[in-house]
């Protein structure tokens, strides 16, 4: 498809957008839910980047976090469980002029939608894909998800999760053509914002796992990390997310990590003894599917001319 948009658009081009220009319906997540913080960060990002609300689409699946688009005043696509990425891919293939953000939960992204997660990463279509990871199915009331810590009790596995938790960062880093893989936490707003901004500015598919507290079902999982910044390593690099000034003192553990170094990134991700926040990997030199498939536009008459030529081959 051709990548162009029409020039026909209203004249008021240089309008400045404020936070309230991006605020949709009042968010109805539980008090204390980490999703509120992600919403605020996203809205701040849109202000900062001055993205036009009508040229921005938030695509989601089904789950607590997938209510996200309703709370934005942009275009939103609240589709099917696990299927946000194909929809977003379709949008971006047809309309690369749009800014596309995808909001998924852990069940959404790495369970029912796992196939799409793998392939969307490989397509490397320019969009921000956030996985809001609270380690549990929240909307359906506490079922084990692939990222639930082993042994953690839920309604479906009351004896505790049987399997070791899936490591989404490590897995994503293993996918061919992954171009941006980052992790942040909703309880550190400055880092969250900086990470989302780096993801937005990245040319390609930016996968961001946001560690997210669920005050109702998994309140304890991130409790220690919230209380004790010592448990967290901040990956620090100007090509990734430099540790924000405001956090340098509070989070004393900084790891210098060049995001172009894939094998180092994989080692850092595989070691789950520490929580590591920042950009694990980033390479803008990788092929982007919507670019690869870019085609010029044709007028209707042009198409008729070409079609006639093609049909000549089937003419008797």
């Amino acid at each position: 498809m051709s990548h162009s948009c029409s020039l026909l658009a209203p004249v008021d081009e240089d309008q400045e957008f404020h936070l309230d220009d991006y605020e949709g319906a009042r968010a109805r997540w539980c008090p204390g839910c980490g999703d509120h913080s992600v919403l605020t960060a996203a809205q701040r990002l849109l202000v900062d980047e001055q993205l036009k609300p009508e040229e921005t689409v938030f695509v989601s699946g089904i789950g607590c976090s997938s209510r996200f688009p309703h709370y934005m005043k942009t275009y939103g696509f609240h589709g099917l469980h696990g299927r946000a990425l194909p929809v977003a891919t379709g949008i971006k293939l047809h309309r690369p002029d749009l800014n596309v953000f995808v909001v998924m939960g852990d069940g959404d992204c790495v369970s029912i939608g796992a196939g799409h997660w793998v392939h969307a990463t490989r397509y490397n279509v320019d969009m921000v894909a956030m996985m809001l990871d609270n380690n549990i199915y929240g909307l359906t009331k506490m079922q084990t998800s692939p990222t639930t810590p082993q042994g953690y009790k839920s309604n479906t596995q009351p004896q505790g999760s049987w399997l070791p938790a899936l490591n989404p960062i490590e897995a994503t880093l293993g996918i061919t053509n992954a171009s941006f893989v980052a992790q942040t936490a909703e309880w550190i707003p400055a880092h969250l914002f900086a990470t989302l901004q780096a993801a937005y500015r990245h040319n390609g598919f930016a996968f961001v796992r946001v560690l997210q507290r669920c005050p109702v079902f998994t309140a304890d999982i991130y409790m220690d990390a919230v209380r004790n910044p010592e448990m967290i390593d901040m990956l620090d690099h100007p090509d990734g997310v430099p540790v924000p000034e405001s956090l340098r003192q509070i989070y004393p553990n900084h790891l210098r990590h060049d995001p172009l170094n894939l094998s180092a990134a994989r080692d850092l991700a595989a070691d789950t003894s520490r929580i590591r926040l920042g950009v694990f990997f980033r390479d803008e030199g990788l092929p982007r599917y919507e670019e690869t498939r870019h085609l010029p536009a044709h007028t209707a008459d042009d198409k008729i001319r070409i079609l006639n030529e093609e049909l000549d081959q089937y003419a008797v």
């Binding site: 194909p86 379709g90 293939l93 085609l295 079609l307």
Partner: peptide, 27 residues
């Protein structure tokens, strides 16, 4: 030649998802 893409998706579900995403955003 007509500006058209044949997108071979990762599965049947993704195929219709991509078509719906494209349709939603225009043609």
């Amino acid at each position: 030649k007509f500006g058209g893409i044949v997108h071979q998706a990762e599965d049947e579900i993704a195929a219709v998802g991509v078509a719906i995403g494209a349709s939603y955003s225009g043609k």
